[in-house]
Design a protein around this nucleic acid. Structure first.
Length: 302
DNA sequence: CATTTCACCTGGTGGC
DNA sequence: TGCCACCAGGTGAAAT
């Protein structure tokens, strides 16, 4: 389901709804442990903590958690040596983040959802985690295919979560070119590599290559400077447009409030196989590249 | 080392 | 209706 725009929409929605809330009850379900860490250990760590802030890094949702016994407006008495860290968006939250004692990191995989619900809302099939909040509402993690990952980090023992790749919304021209320099793989495959850029997935790789007029099979290291810059700008544009429209709801994506996004209406190539190109009427072509369905216009993309 | 393929899961869709 | 093949927003281990 989720690439950068969808994860951004969910994270900001969850942040608006649960920021400042205390976790009073934790429930994990399912027979197996589909996560990065035993459910019991996560539950123990989460219980009683205040959610200070929820934000996105790459495709990960990071919930910044206070210490279990602190109040929402606690003063910085229990300073944590490792707590001053990178990876925080500069939104003026540093003062409070420096006392953050833990993180809950959510990766949605293909079909994961993070929902804020009322306590009486019916529990959807494949609900794997429910965090009961002081207000009575619940934060629920639902994931049919179970490709998603949940991880709890004690910040006194670990560094804060940092995305492995560059941020596609703020990467500079020079950094962007450097990422692909000398690489002998298809540009589409390179865009999907999270160690290079964090947050680009199948939809936005195809859509940005269309906007930049570049064929997905072109080798990353052979792109000209002009083409790389066109791609960087196209990628930024398409991601920002998609965030503005709440992401793409292709089959069942919904935000933290259960609402769909609308960027699927703006797709030029993704899942438009055989349909006429919106610019030149040539039928859109589908190939498999890096194991993923890949869509492009053979006329507009060279 | 860099690059490619495939397994991990469940569910929806379309052909026969 | 049923059965089956194929497809799906991602990722990392294994193979090449």
């Amino acid at each position: 389901m989720p690439e950068l725009p969808e994860v951004e929409t969910i994270a900001s929605g969850v942040n608006l709804r649960v920021r400042g809330e205390r976790i009073v009850e934790v429930w994990f379900g399912g027979k197996r442990e589909p996560f990065k860490m035993p459910a019991a250990r996560q539950a123990k760590g989460l219980e009683g903590r205040v959610i200070l802030e929820v934000h996105r890094t790459g495709k990960h949702i990071v919930c910044e958690l206070g210490t279990a016994d602190e109040t929402v407006q606690s003063h910085p008495s229990r300073k944590d040596k490792n707590a001053a860290r990178m990876g925080h968006p500069s939104d003026g939250f540093e003062e409070q983040a420096s006392e953050t004692a833990a993180q809950w990191i959510v990766h949605l995989g293909m079909t994961g959802r993070l929902l804020v619900t009322t306590p009486d809302a019916p529990v959807a099939p494949h609900t794997h985690a429910r965090l009961g909040l002081a207000s009575g509402r619940e934060l629920r993690f639902v994931d049919p295919r179970r490709f998603g990952r949940l991880e709890f980090r004690e910040l006194s023992r670990n560094a804060g979560f940092v995305a492995p790749g560059a941020d596609p919304l703020s990467v500079t021209t020079a950094e962007f070119a450097q990422l692909f320099h000398g690489r002998r793989l298809a540009i589409k495959a390179a865009l999907l590599n999270q160690k290079l850029l964090s947050g680009v997935g199948n939809i936005y790789a195809d859509e940005s290559l269309f906007r930049a007029g570049i064929r997905p099979r072109r080798l990353a290291g052979r792109l000209k400077r002009m083409e790389l810059e066109a791609l960087r700008l196209a990628l930024g544009e398409v991601l920002r447009d998609a965030i503005r429209l709440g992401g793409s709801s292709v089959s069942d994506y919904v935000d933290s409030d259960g609402m769909p996004g609308f960027f699927q209406l703006e797709h030029c190539v993704y899942q438009r196989t055989g349909l006429p190109c919106l610019r030149c009427q040539t039928p859109i072509r589908r190939i498999v590249l890096a194991g993923r369905g890949t869509h492009y216009c053979p006329q507009c993309q060279r």
